[in-house]
Design a protein around this nucleic acid. Sequence first.
DNA 1: GCCTAGAAGCAACAAAATCGCTTTAAGGTG
DNA 2: CACCTTAAAGCGATTTTGTTGCTTCTAGGC
Lengths: 209, 209
Amino acid sequence: MSPKPMVRPGGRSARVQESVHAAIRELVGEVGRDALTVPMVATRAGVTPSTIYRRWGDLQELLSDVAVERLRPETDPADLGSLRADLDAWAEQFIDEMASPPGRAYIRDALLGDPDGTNAGQCSAYAAEQIDVMLARAVQRGEPVPETELLIDRVVAPIMYRILFRPGRLDAAYARELVTNAVSAQQTEAGAGPAQAAAPRRSKKKPDS
Amino acid sequence: MSPKPMVRPGGRSARVQESVHAAIRELVGEVGRDALTVPMVATRAGVTPSTIYRRWGDLQELLSDVAVERLRPETDPADLGSLRADLDAWAEQFIDEMASPPGRAYIRDALLGDPDGTNAGQCSAYAAEQIDVMLARAVQRGEPVPETELLIDRVVAPIMYRILFRPGRLDAAYARELVTNAVSAQQTEAGAGPAQAAAPRRSKKKPDS
DNA sequence: GCCTAGAAGCAACAAAATCGCTTTAAGGTG
DNA sequence: CACCTTAAAGCGATTTTGTTGCTTCTAGGC
């Protein structure tokens, strides 16, 4: 019971994690996501299958980890001079990325092998962070801003709901409509939105590279 | 190429389907959802494993079918005299059912083994039907009513998003808040909501009981 | 009442997941 | 800086699951 043995974020474990993730990225490109098997990934990564089974449990949890990594936004949203413009552009790009076939696949994978919701929470946190960046800029400009939570309910949630549950209509016009409704709501409904700090946590067993 | 051999909705196939579904319901109660295996289900149902593999492909698709069945609403929403009251009560019940641990499990299962989105679409259709019932009643009373799509975006989507992606705060107060915002929006934004008939389709290989 | 073909059963096989045990090497300790 | 301690990786035997070709059954059409 030493105080902090915990996870082992560096060294061999880290190398294994990295080579396994890399193996998956390669193999998804070569044979397709559906043909993946644990033994196949293990061979490519140069580890034994039992290592993967012990660390991740099954292929789904592993794919979930990889998916979350790929859903991490690479850059901050563009600064276009006004909150409205920033949100429009961001929402449109969000739809483009998330509603595309690979995007849908990543979302599904992220949700799939995620018993405790950690990975799903992380996805949500990414969106919230992006929104916060835009809101912070708007505040600095002196614009009135809605709550992060309101934007999540009004913009992010409908988009994700449609991606997961419904067929058609996910285009730029829809994005603008959502943004319009969300920012105009901020005037009429002011503080009526939920105010709740989403605590982004991450722990579990996985060493982040 | 005879005109309608198709699926075979009755007879032995139907009995097999029913006994397999029943076996799953029983076993989920006995050993828990995570301990299920195809051979186990097959034995309990009195069929050979290969039958299950051939008809459903894998455990996930099978669980997805069962989950959708259980997510089907059993009754129409209560008629409480006004749209507002109906929606409040319905949203609260929706949260209770869907955000409970078993509810979450069904939602996940329904999304999971569902390559083509048929089952997910069905879930969404259930909610839309319930909403339509309430709206139709409101119209008969002479109340002004919002679009179904607006209610899906403003009430259903945020709830489902939070269930799937975010931890806390899913209570009756939140439900009321969403409903309030949705019905008041109908005044200010009138026809600004999306208008799109979601075509509920169902085909695939499965004979519905 | 006979055909037909879609589905289930069966059994041999192939692939996967699991588990006990051994070995390696991070990272803390004296 | 050598030395422990211990989490994690490797290995191989074993169990469990998934696949496949072929046979048998039977619902539904004629």
